[in-house]
Computed example of a mutant assay.
Amino acid sequence: MVNPIRETDDAARTQAQSFLQTCRHAALGVLIRDGQPMVTRIAFAPDLDGQPISLISDLSAHTQALKARPACSLLLGEPEERGDPLTHPRLSLMAQAEFLPRDSADHAARAAHYLQINPKAKLYLGFSDFTFVRFRITEAALNGGFGKAYQLTPQDLGL
């Protein structure tokens, strides 16, 4: 059987990096109680250092799952209105969640940066149960369209 994974090239790196810079939401996959998987949608943005972050509530099931098991995955990319959804590009990120303390020295800069990208987050940024979570990418899989599958490293993503 032929390996469907192509050798990672500059075009694949550019496409994957574009996802990280332009996507504003992602599907987050976590493991909840008894290892049951759960997927939810989250707001998404690159942090000051380019790593993906989100602002999430301590009250949510996915936050509790990430605190118990930081391993997670993110899916970026949405199918267009026309065509087969399976032929549209998407990027899967495997990551470790890292919660960022609200009293950290760079919290104000991070919050201002995040609000430039996701201005509606201003509604809940000040709520005490909301905190930033950084997703430290360990590996990625790019499906660049039909027959265009790539495995990528954090370095391929410019991280």
Results as ranks from 00 to 15, higher is better:
residue 23 C to F: 11
residue 27 A to P: 04
residue 126 G to I: 07
residue 81 E to C: 10
residue 71 A to G: 10
residue 68 A to D: 11
residue 118 N to R: 15
residue 13 R to T: 04
residue 21 Q to P: 06
residue 85 P to F: 03
residue 100 L to V: 14
residue 33 R to E: 15
residue 104 S to T: 11
residue 83 G to K: 05
residue 95 A to W: 00
residue 30 V to K: 07
residue 146 F to R: 05
residue 82 R to Y: 05
residue 140 A to R: 02
residue 54 S to G: 15
residue 137 I to M: 09
residue 66 L to R: 04
residue 100 L to G: 07
residue 140 A to K: 03
residue 15 Q to D: 07
residue 151 Q to W: 06
residue 51 Q to T: 15
residue 144 G to L: 00
residue 95 A to N: 01
residue 78 E to W: 05
residue 137 I to C: 11
residue 100 L to H: 13
residue 93 L to I: 09
residue 47 D to W: 15
residue 1 M to F: 13
residue 120 K to R: 12
residue 119 P to N: 04
residue 49 D to E: 13
residue 86 L to C: 09
residue 50 G to W: 08
residue 44 F to K: 10
residue 133 V to G: 08
residue 33 R to D: 15
residue 5 I to C: 02
residue 7 E to H: 01
residue 59 L to Y: 13
residue 62 H to F: 05
residue 39 V to Q: 13
residue 99 F to Q: 08
residue 127 F to S: 10
residue 156 D to Y: 00
residue 108 A to Y: 08
residue 7 E to T: 12
residue 131 T to D: 12
residue 69 R to Y: 09
residue 45 A to Y: 04
residue 145 G to D: 01
residue 121 A to W: 05
residue 105 A to I: 13
residue 123 L to R: 14
residue 62 H to W: 05
residue 37 P to D: 06
residue 123 L to W: 12
residue 77 G to C: 09
residue 107 H to K: 12
residue 35 G to Y: 07
residue 150 Y to T: 03
residue 86 L to G: 06
residue 8 T to S: 00
residue 80 E to L: 12
residue 9 D to R: 00
residue 51 Q to F: 12
residue 18 S to Q: 15
residue 158 G to Q: 04
residue 12 A to N: 02
residue 122 K to S: 13
residue 144 G to E: 00
residue 77 G to K: 04
residue 144 G to S: 01
residue 3 N to Q: 11
residue 126 G to E: 15
residue 49 D to S: 13
residue 119 P to C: 03
residue 116 Q to I: 08
residue 127 F to V: 10
residue 63 T to K: 08
residue 56 I to W: 10
residue 28 L to S: 07
residue 68 A to V: 05
residue 6 R to A: 09
residue 116 Q to A: 14
residue 6 R to H: 07
residue 61 A to T: 15
residue 72 C to V: 10
residue 28 L to N: 06
residue 157 L to D: 01
residue 75 L to G: 05
residue 59 L to R: 14
residue 28 L to F: 07
